[in-house]
Design a protein around this nucleic acid. Structure first.
Lengths: 242, 242
DNA sequence: TTCTCCCTCCCCAGAAATGGGGAGGGGGCG
DNA sequence: CGCCCCCTCCCCATTTCTGGGGAGGGAGAA
């Protein structure tokens, strides 16, 4: 039974990750990790704050293309299962009961993936979502031991991957929009909580006309096209909590 | 120069944290950590998926009451500064330029807080937000060394605190609502992105009447009072990304 | 075979939202 | 002192949303 632990220091790896400046650097880092741990695959996959998807990992180009062509994103239990979780998820914990998901898994293994996998979900402050995945082919006993030895380091590595990805996203972002005033935030929050404009005005002890001014000003600051859009943007930007 | 590292094993602490079943247990764990690290305060503060706020930490009841009475939540740079970040934040990195924030800090120190602090933001899958904070009183040199020695373990500890808090929340939650159908999700997504109903219908190649059915059905499934509320709930539940 | 859910489409009347416009007072910063 | 932003309030006409209701076909699972 061969047990994999990281060759070389966590420290030196994280130092180099910190110096990454491009998506290519993140890709190189996943290759480095795959080699250091001696596993089949390491993948960092993320969705930024406007829903754009990115991947940096060691899956073959053939498999990535096939995944996209067949719209496996709509089937993959790893995506949906992890999206609603916070802590690392072993692939065995996921729901593989549908025919489509089992066919998907068979197809994945036929294209170079291993039978074991663990994915670490990462949620960003503005709705970003990322998955850091390690995939290998070995027995259950080996896999359990691998996780026990390495999972904490992998959480820290995933954390730093995500930090770096958010930095890269922020570097590419346009200048942030004007902040909302407290009353504008309150107006957005009350509408997000389901109040009508009349109810929100009453709650704030102001007239509906006044509330309307706050809603309209907030909407313009957020660059939104209508009130629903404004609320959606405020939530996504982490400006309000519903 | 006294350097603090954790007394006793990280492993045994995390094992005990895993067995926590109440908020009181989380509180006890923060006391345990404060003593093990030999710092002034350890606090875990979180906002669940419906905006309810909870705290488990070693601040004095007097300070907590004062914080709430004076509505310091609206001033505290730690809250706003960390809410939009992903990685741990030293309090010195925050914006203390306003008179109110400086007065707040003086008041905090006068009520038992130390001059040094680091907060680890944690974002959950359904809009939950938590802060894991360590606070102490020492020189900058000591504090930098403390962080260098302990920050990775603190990230893992914060992670497990958050996992436990989310478990406690989920245990208290009512049964999840019915899932939205693909078309309902598409309707919600397009409205969240700012399209009018007419535009969304055109985008999906269906009539406005049909889109209306999806919007209304989704709204009922989400238990929302109007369309804006439905979109807000879908976003908060992590069902859609804008 | 039956049942359930999804997808598709239509109706009317009343209420609410939207797109513009107008206005004044107070506080804080340069 | 002047400027900017926040908070407060009002107007009209048009468009959109909402609260109910109706209907039928297809696919998949039990």
């Amino acid at each position: 039974m061969q047990i994999h632990v990281m060759q070389g220091g966590l420290e030196s790896f994280l130092d180099r990750l910190q110096r990454a400046t491009t998506l290519e650097d993140l890709y190189r880092a996943t290759e480095d990790l795959r080699d250091r741990y001696g596993v089949f695959h390491v993948v960092y996959h993320w969705v930024n704050s406007v829903g754009e998807r990115y991947g940096a990992g060691t899956y073959s180009t053939e498999w990535v293309d096939r995944y996209l062509d067949r719209d496996y994103l709509m089937i993959d239990p790893v995506i949906f299962g992890c999206y609603s979780r916070f802590h690392p998820v072993d692939w065995k914990e996921l729901d593989w009961s549908t025919k489509a998901s089992r066919a998907f898994l068979e197809d994945a293994i036929a294209h170079g993936l291993g039978n074991q996998g663990v994915s670490i979900p990462l949620h960003g402050p503005k709705g970003q979502f990322a998955l850091f995945t390690v995939n290998d082919s070995c027995s259950d006993v080996s896999w359990d031991m691998f996780k026990q030895l390495n999972l904490r380091d992998l959480i820290l590595i995933a954390h730093d991957f995500n930090k770096k990805a958010l930095e890269l996203e922020q570097a590419a972002d346009p200048a942030p929009r004007a902040a909302l005033s407290p009353r504008e935030l309150s107006a957005m929050t009350l509408l997000a909580k389901g109040m009508s404009r009349a109810q929100a005005a009453q709650e704030l002890s102001i007239s509906e006309h006044t509330l309307r001014v706050y809603v309209e000003t907030a909407r313009h600051k957020l660059g939104a096209l209508n009130t629903t859009h404004a609320v959606a943007r405020a939530l996504s930007a982490g400006l309000i909590v519903v």
